[in-house]
Simulated assay, not measured.
Amino acid sequence: MSITSSTTGLSGRSVVVTGAGSGIGRAAALRFAAEGARVVLADLNADAAKAVAEEISEAGGTAVTVIGDLSDQQVVDQVVATAVGSFGGIDVLVNNAGVMDRMSAAADTEDDEWERVLRINLTAPFLLSRAALPHLLASGNAAIVFTASEASLRGSAAGAAYTASKHGVAGLTKSLAVMYRDEGVRTNAIAPGGTVTGIQVDVDREAHGPSVVMRHMGNAGRTATADEQAAAIVFLASDAASNVNGVILPVDNGWSAV
């Protein structure tokens, strides 16, 4: 990766990317940096985030890291304070961090699975969006991009907890889009299909939920790369999407069209 001049309006902008240490978040952070943006890398894994920061720095870009659990309000506040202190504000927020469930059907979903998935996938991005909004509004030309999922569009792509969390992300995306469109903040989401990332899925294939979900995977099409998802994120955050707001954009090789 080399740092090049920006044609997307992202050069010099302050961008927060969560889950930036690996997968789609890493790919997005690298793309934003290549566009000349200054990037806050938020992740639970300190070594992974540091490695991405070093990669960006070696290519001539600018990145800082914040390590911690984004469902913790103190970590959320630290992310916002770091972006404001390091780069003067927040222009783009990418709520990407998330976890999978065990593809459990509702009757088999235990409290810990439900609470963990909802807390990380839905509550954490809500907390960060709420904390970042004063600074996004001050920007006057800001964007929030969520990583939703194919599971935000249908009921056959994951278990009860993950599906509910990603439907919630889609609803939060649309609510933010309506509430703040006249104040200079656009909000959109990508809905990835199958993508090569480092997320591990603990699945009992003989259990009811996984056995049902697996029957529908034949329509999923080819598996995407993390960089293909990142390209859509950067587009939605860029001036090229200046009139795109409230969209849940499938990046799924047509799975949602089947």
Rank of each mutant, 00 (worst) to 15 (best):
G9M: 01
R13P: 06
A20M: 07
G21Q: 00
G23E: 03
A27P: 00
A53C: 14
E54D: 06
E54S: 03
E58A: 15
G61K: 07
L70E: 05
S71K: 09
A81Q: 12
V84K: 10
G88A: 13
R102S: 14
S104V: 04
S104W: 06
A105I: 08
R116V: 10
I120A: 12
L122Y: 04
T123I: 08
A124F: 07
A124H: 05
P125H: 11
S149I: 02
E150Y: 10
A151Y: 02
A151Q: 04
S156K: 11
S156Y: 07
A158R: 00
T163V: 01
A164S: 05
K166H: 06
K166M: 06
H167P: 03
Y180M: 06
R181Y: 15
E183V: 10
R186A: 04
R186N: 03
R186P: 03
A191C: 12
T197A: 07
D204N: 08
M214Y: 07
R215F: 04
H216E: 08
N219M: 13
T223K: 09
A237W: 11
N243E: 15
N243R: 14
G246A: 13
G246S: 15
P250L: 02
P250H: 03
P250G: 02
V251A: 04
D252R: 03
N253A: 15
V258E: 06
